[in-house]
Amino acid sequence: MTTSTNYYWLVASLPHMPRSFDVEQAPILRIRLEQRLKMLGAQDKSIVEQVQGFLLWDRQRPERTDEEVKREYDWLMNSITNKLVRDIINHRMDVRTITCALRRRRLGLGPPSAVGQYVGRIRKHWHHPDFRLAREHPWIPRVRETLDANQPLEVERQLLSATWDRWVKLADKFYFSFETILLYLARWEIVDRWTRLDESAGRQRFDDLLSQTLALDGDVG
């Protein structure tokens, strides 16, 4: 690990991101990407680890309670000062919160006890089709319709697409800087997630989650 990052070297050593995340394989293998990231300076490395930690935390275990999630989210937001990292985390949380709210309402449940800036607004506008958030998040009406049409893969594509477009737009503002690398990683994570999407594996994962949840309910009962 070096003390400061050579952004010109690092950015130029990474293959270009495709225009769309809907590709057959990621532009760079995880192992190769990790090798390149070893050239990050100490401070940048710690910020990247925070982002990667969040992305792992983002795929949380089902037994985690809402209180635990809130506590971890608050800890994360208090420990991160980089504006772009906060933006990445907040956007991911907002997408999750809104999607969760759409799913719960569709199932006839109440507003989620989630975290993020929109929890209050969702509660307040629970009966509005888009929670009055369509201006900030134009993807909500399309995702709501696709959810109603019961097309989970298409929902995932639209959610990833909304996030992808946001990072692409932001990436246009940066060239050879730490932000370029952060946005590269954020987009790589989307491509990686999409290319690893497998319908049969998804069904297996759903079955696993369902049996874990039922087992947990059984323990409580």
């Binding site: 050579n6 010109y8 130029a12």
Partner: peptide, 10 residues
């Protein structure tokens, strides 16, 4: 030069 050496990897 830094960009060129980085690009050599790709």
């Amino acid at each position: 030069g830094q960009a060129a050496t980085g690009a050599l990897l790709d």
